[in-house]
Write a protein that binds this DNA or RNA. Sequence first.
DNA 1: ATTAATCCCTATTAAACTGGTAGGATTAAT
DNA 2: ATTAATCCTACCAGTTTAATAGGGATTAAT
Lengths: 138, 138
Amino acid sequence: MLSSRVKYAIHALLYIHEQKAHTPLSAKKIADAKKIPFKFLESILQELKQAAIIKSQRGPSGGYGFLKSPDDVTIAAIMRIIDGPIALTSCTSENFYDTCDECMSEHECEIKTVFRDLRKEMLPVLNRSISELSKLSK
Amino acid sequence: MLSSRVKYAIHALLYIHEQKAHTPLSAKKIADAKKIPFKFLESILQELKQAAIIKSQRGPSGGYGFLKSPDDVTIAAIMRIIDGPIALTSCTSENFYDTCDECMSEHECEIKTVFRDLRKEMLPVLNRSISELSKLSK
DNA sequence: ATTAATCCCTATTAAACTGGTAGGATTAAT
DNA sequence: ATTAATCCTACCAGTTTAATAGGGATTAAT
């Protein structure tokens, strides 16, 4: 299941996108509007900033805004930054690949086939961007 | 990510299926063949038995065998029994549905749309059965 | 220059989850 | 009766999760 961090992250990014403010949006405002625990949200925004998704402005009337275009920020990317791999097994992960014992010992693990196919079906859906998502809800 | 319990469960069921023995297969043999910690495997087999996937025979020359047909035992079913929901949010889960705060407050949560679509794409792959999987590997 | 609002960093915590272990009771075939 | 197997209950150490707490650094409006 999705962590609450990822859910909060998506909600926060959607909110920032939808406000379309030229001035940055403060964590406080986002937290209030989206009912996210303030301090918890702060740490999530830090993580997104570290990953170069958003940028921040300090001081009064400071806050957060997109660094990358919302068209290019996908749900998959947010999940990878915060929760890690999309794939359900490390041996079928593209960005977090790791061998599993079974794959080493057997010529081709039966499980691998399923979860490689699964990942392939999941990606197109998760590659939707924040701006796409925002349009859908209207 | 998949829990090791689910991975072990799938491997164990595949092994039982492939042995095609008329006599039940002991946890010990499965554990040795598939290199699964014996006691850990036992508890997994208990769970599968409780869920009426397999049946057991006690005593010497006892062990485990399919109760349902391997044609009808899907990866999705095993995952639901052991790890819980397939869907990534409870509000898009069929078998473990639960409301989330956002879904209540807003007319239609944007996130819900994505993860409902995601679930829809995942299911056909995860509805493959043990016997299908077994054929694929040959 | 003060101050108010923010970012940013570190630490702590309670609860749940994960991946096992341990030991004994029960059952049935020999 | 012995043995080999399932069954049942409890335990445990380590990690993760979802926060909370506190405070320092930075900035900009006044």
